[in-house]
Amino acid sequence: MKRNGKNSLVFWLFLAPVLFAFVMVIVIPFFLGVFYSFTNWSSSARADNALRFVGLVNFQKGLRDPTFGYSFLITIVYTVINMIVINVVAFLLALLVTSKTKLRNLYRAGFFIPNLIGGLILGYIWQFIFNNAVPSLGTFLGFTSWANPANLILAKRTSAIAAMIAAGTWQYAGYIMVIYVAAIENVPVELHEAAQIDGASPFTRMRVITIPMASQAFTITLFLTLVQSFKQFDVNVSLTAGGPSTIFMGKPIFGTELLAMNIYDTAFVSNDLAGGQARAVIFFLVLAVVSMAQVSINKKREIEL
């Protein structure tokens, strides 16, 4: 019993720093945020600035704002495409670096490195590539249409969203690849050997052995990419800043403003911090429901070894 008591003291001591940080920067701000979403909070020194409850007004305003609805729609589109592209690319990269290719360790490092670059910087780098490098390359290679301003990738809404997906994939596929690599290497070699003796082709082996055996990895990678895509903010701000514009419900609005950026703009451009907070609460609820549904569906498909 005595040893147990000592153990739990050690346990709590080791946990304390993390717990402290978690409570201070996640738990408390979360509940404060929910609290503020029901008030008129503006974080400014206006003359009529007393904090008071306004009920559900902020939520109603958010749900009635066409820009919020629009951001919801394109965030869903962006998330679905981004999840597919990142996972397909990451899985292919994982297959490449677990094969017997020469320099596979170099590839592993190379594919992972973009993940270490901050999203803002990465956005500006890609902005330069799309705005300057691609037209210059087009001129150099003789594809004049690449240099035509009408075809600039960031000048059109659909191609700008595609550009965000490209930049996002470049950043995140390496990270997801690492998870797939671990999963693929954990598949028992005997299964492959047995299948090979039975005459299964490499493709069949991947379909009936590798993919089912890696289903635990799929649960986690799909969850990570879902949440990451839904919360995308930094690449959005630095690469497109919400542009180009589009017309939605008869009103010109930002054409590539994802949900997180819409929340930020509501808070800081429109000076409506409580309104932004209310949108963040809606965002949280939707994301929590969707990601829990995703995890429970994926869990059912997992194979116990």
Partner: peptide, 22 residues
Amino acid sequence: FTTDFRQKTLGPIYNQFATGAI
């Protein structure tokens, strides 16, 4: 005029005109 009005309402209108969408 508020920042909200200039950046979020007028900004996209000019941008639409500039890109030739309207």
